[in-house]
Structure formats: structure tokens, C-alpha cells
Design a protein around this nucleic acid. Sequence first.
DNA 1: ACAGGTCAAGTCGTA
DNA 2: TACGACTTGACCTGT
Length: 323
Amino acid sequence: MEVRLGYVAMSVHVANASPSKTMTAAQFDKIGDKEAGLHKLERIAEENIHNCIRLLYHNRAYNIKFFRLSSRLIPLVGHEYTHGWNYMDELAPHFQKLGEVAREDGVRIDFHPDHFVLLNSPRKQVFDTSHKVLEHHIRMLTAMSLSPKHRCVMHVGGAYSDKEKALKRFVANWDKVSPEVRQAIMLENDDKVYTARDTLMLCETLGIPMVLDIHHHRCNPGQDADISSLLPRILATWSRSSLPPKMHISSPRSDKNKRAHADYIRPEELFPFLKEMARMTERLDIMVEAKQKDDAVLRLMDWVKREGEVHGIQAVNGGAFTV
DNA sequence: ACAGGTCAAGTCGTA
DNA sequence: TACGACTTGACCTGT
């Protein structure tokens, strides 16, 4: 099985390379002139995109082939202050360059829209805003000349004091989601409400690839203390995707704060799964969700190099290896 | 220069 | 019904 490790949005190694510099609404308001404000936002976005390119060059050095882009590349997008802003007029060439670098290196790029993007909300306005945010993500992917298919991972949403009803509402709302947005989505189990089993059922019903988050599953296992029996079905949700199945891993921050992400990944979070997965899939992309970002990936890579052989791992090449 | 507070979003638990 | 906590990185304000 070919495994590729990835990390989230920013680096602790590359200095001054934030991909999510922003401007507050108050600051925008203070400028007074909308055109001038939008121009400034475009300059910030340009810098964010440029920093993503720098991060991809950094990834190239370590053969890291999987990367989640920040969902905050363009500040205040969707805010009422920026209504009617054709940000792509200015930013398209920069996105194009970012996409070129990603393609050159064969890097899998994806997004994780923020947790207030909710397709199962009973409030129409929340649904509409969420849909707009997802359309915005597709616009960015298209500007990078990357296929938007299965590039946005998100959660099922809120429980709204009736989980069964809220699950049904997700299915009902799915009809109102545009075909482009539907294709872009992957669903992930969360750490409080929707278990891996809940999410899987939804994914099977609607034909959505499922991203298994191991850490969330440990926080919120439901009836499936052992995830093994669900793994073949989870992998099967990827059968019609051109992308390899994807997982998230992280370790709990502490006993008191189990849900929060630790700085690093404990290798034992990973290895029992790898052998099991290797029997079921040819490829697997693993997103490392750790506070120390790329450094957590580098540390895991060192571990794989040092001790991996015992666990059946061969042919290590930076952030990619074979099990 | 640094610390602590604020922002942005929607949901959810507690008064 | 109203408000604070939650989450995250960055910005903002006061020292």
C-alpha cells in the first residue's frame, strides 16, 4: 500500500509564511472607501496564496504529497461588506500558479471548510451561506485548474436536539445542493455527534466518500468500539473516486482535554491501522492533524525510517512510504 | 516587545 | 431568552 502523509495549511518551519492573514471587518469599515478596501484585501489574499506556493516548495524538499489549503485564503469573502466583489479578476493568475506547482509535484490538495458550514441546519439562511462558502471553494479549485471532485471535507453538522431528524434533513437538503458542490464534498465523522457509523450510512446513501478520523472515532465511537468491521465499507465509499481513500489522524492533547489535538502524533495511533488497511487498499492518504503541523509529519517520517521495518514498512521516501 | 483581549462563524449548554 | 463556551489563527490594544 502506498501511503502519503499530509499536514494542515501552515508550517512551523517556514518563517513568515501564513496562508491566512486577514483583515477585520472593523478595519475594512475604517478605510471608508470600498474599492480601496477591496484592493487591500486582494493584496492580503495574494500574499496568502504566495505563501501557499512557498509551502509547496517546502513540501517538495521532503516529498510531502498531500496538503490541506487554508479556507481563509481570501479575507472577508462572503462578508456583507464585500458584496459583489469579483476577487478572481485579480487573483486568478495567482491561483493558477499555485495549481501549477501542485500539479508539477503531484500533490493532492484539499480543503476543510470551517465548522460553521452546515448543510443540515434547519435555518435556510445558514444553509444558503454554507452553500455559498462551498461554491467559493470550488471557484478557488477551478482557478487552480484542479478538479473540484472530492476536495472539500466537512462534517455532517449539528444535532439540533434530534439527531435522527437532523440526519434526515441532511438527506433532504442534499437535493438542494448543486451538482458541482455535491461532487466536491467528502464527509468526516466528528468527535461529539455523528459517529463513524452515522457518517458511513449517510455516505452510502448519498454516494459521498467518507473520511475516517481516527481521533474523532476514539472520542465518539458509538456502538463500534472496534472500527475494523466498518473499514471495508468506508473504503468502498471511495470506489468511484479518482483519488485514494483519505484518513485523518491525531492524538489527544491530554487526559483532561482528550478532544483537542496534541502537538505530535504517537506512532502507535497509526501503525495498527496501516497493516489492516494495507490488506484492503492499494493507496491511502493520511492527513496529520497535529498542532506542530509539518514538524509532526517530519517526526513521524523519522519514526517510520527508524522503526518502520519492524512494522512491515518499506521504501520510505520522505512523506511517502510503502506498507 | 509582549500579554491578554477580540474577531469571525453557528451550535449548544446553562442560567 | 440570553449569554458564554467552544474552536482557530491572526489582529488589536494596552502596557
